[in-house]
């Protein structure tokens, strides 16, 4: 705990600094920043969201996201960088979860349920105990994309590029792990290492997502664009790219809608993703009815 809490601290920045925005004044309005941040986030979240869908990690991702508030609390308590605190706690919880669900008699579902909600509860309690820190918990729960700063965007793009580079480099290993861990193992694709890598990448994206849509809606922005892209993708690569594009469209549409109707941006982005998902579903059903996807055609 910090020694003498005499002053109140206002936390506005992931990086924990209060730098004036150094970027040019033309672009320096909150909407441009929000768009740049949201689109950058979506490009990375697309492929990762696909893995969440393919490997049924939605609940797992939820648990990681909920533990983010615990990360915030710890970072505030020990005056650490918030983004790093969240990343560390998410990763820690994910690794503990892997071990616990292997060994305990509880089903994975129950273990996840206990951890997911208790990390959120513990985080909420801890943050509210810290009377010397004035934070708006709602910003963490529902995101605060309109307050994103250029320095945060730089961190987001640097981290996001790194995640995309790793995905590119390990793509075959990740896909073969998703199809069959045993085939991946027989053909020296190192499925165990790859699984850990995926968890690390998820922790990164979850930490970034807190600012964009908030803890509560993180998983929504991972899985809805992926599920929407599934409906018109024949290969994993197309689905990943489609999820990125749909995610970016959701951000643009959601932010516009948020300004137009004066609704909170995070939930508006998710609602927009949902609309795109439903439109996609209707579209692919219609295409199917007109013979577009009438099963396989086989010469007899």
């Amino acid at each position: 705990m910090p020694s003498t809490p005499t002053t109140t601290t206002t936390v506005t920045d992931w990086t924990g600094r209060f730098l004036p925005d150094g970027a040019g004044e033309v672009m320096d309005d909150f909407l441009s920043r929000a768009l740049v941040a949201g689109i950058g986030f979506s490009l990375v979240a697309g492929p990762l969201g696909c893995f969440v869908v393919w490997q049924r990690l939605a609940y797992f991702g939820d648990t990681m996201a909920h533990s983010a508030l615990l990360g915030v609390a710890l970072a505030l308590a020990f005056e650490l960088n918030i983004l790093l605190g969240v990343f560390g706690v998410c990763l820690g919880i994910a690794l503990v979860l892997g071990r616990v669900s292997d060994r305990s008699g509880l089903s994975g579902d129950t273990t996840l349920g206990i951890l997911s909600h208790s990390t959120l509860a513990v985080g909420l309690v801890l943050v509210s105990l810290m009377y010397w820190v004035r934070v708006d918990i709602l910003h963490f729960l529902f995101g605060n994309i309109l307050a994103v700063t250029w320095s945060e965007i730089i961190v987001l793009y640097a981290g996001g590029s790194l995640v995309l580079a790793v995905l590119w480099w390990k793509w075959d290993a990740l896909i073969s792990l998703t199809v069959s861990e045993q085939i991946a193992s027989a053909e020296n694709m190192g499925p165990v290492r790859t699984r850990y890598l995926l968890v690390v990448l998820l922790a990164v994206i979850v930490a970034f997502a807190m600012k964009i849509v908030g803890i509560i809606l993180t998983v929504a922005l991972l899985i809805i664009p992926a599920a929407a892209a599934r409906q018109f993708s024949a290969t994993p690569e197309r689905m990943a790219a489609g999820a990125s594009i749909i995610g970016a469209l959701s951000v643009v549409g959601g932010l516009m809608g948020s300004l137009e109707f004066d609704t909170p941006p995070g939930p508006s982005i998710v609602v927009n993703a949902l609309i795109l998902f439903i439109l996609g579903m209707i579209g692919s059903r219609l295409a199917g009815r007109h013979g577009g996807r009438s099963g396989r055609s086989r010469p007899k």
Partner: peptide, 9 residues
């Protein structure tokens, strides 16, 4: 091998 229906392949 069970390939999840969500994985286009």
């Amino acid at each position: 091998v069970h390939i999840n229906a969500t994985l286009p392949m």
